[in-house]
Amino acid sequence: MHARLFLKHKNILIFQKGNILHFSDCFSKCWKCNYPHKSNFFCSKCNALQKLPKDLNYFDIIGVSKDFDVPVTDIQKKYRQLQSLLHPDKFGQKSEVEKEISRNVSSLVNKAYTTLLHPLDRGLYMLKLYNICIPEEKTSLDHEFLMKIMEKNEEIEKYSENVEKILEFTKENRITLVRLTKQISQAFHNKDIDQATKLLIKMKYYVNVDNKLKNFRQILGVIE
């Protein structure tokens, strides 16, 4: 060993041939050839697929910035690129170890992708990164808001067989969701996590309404 390496953690100093280098990225050894590699998916020496470090969040995995406003097209593009390299189908001829790693990494990438794709799930995941979880049993919601949601649901059920009304409600609800997305983005931008939490709770209700409308559209045979 001509190089002394202090591995595994972020912000580590690496002494290499007397030079001190500072890396903020995660380093670990390749399971196959022992070569220290940066937190890439593949070893830069032997090209073997690597296990992912445990501390990576979904944004890191997909390779986009940790931002609520990250464009969906970027997420989709990166996801497709990743799966074209990581999918278990690509590892049919490889060793069992690599097959196993591919299955795990690929399913993790899928999970990251589906979580980041929808604004609600993305927002809730960002709250999780701030260590905030929306409690299941907390029922002290704004009374007026609950009333509004109740009335909306009742109205939808009343007109569940009226195609025009259902389409009108869908349009209305979509506008509300877009507005909420913008507000949530602003809240995250201002680092106002309380506000983001409140808005995400509201969004959950409107997403439920959206799903309900989708269901009715399917029953009515509306083609989109």
């Binding site: 409690p135 299941e136 049993e137 907390k138 029922t139 609950l146 709770i201 959950k204 439920n208």
Partner: peptide, 13 residues
Amino acid sequence: GLVGAPACGDVMK
């Protein structure tokens, strides 16, 4: 009584 479960987006009257 009007209550809601924020985590699942349920509303109950």
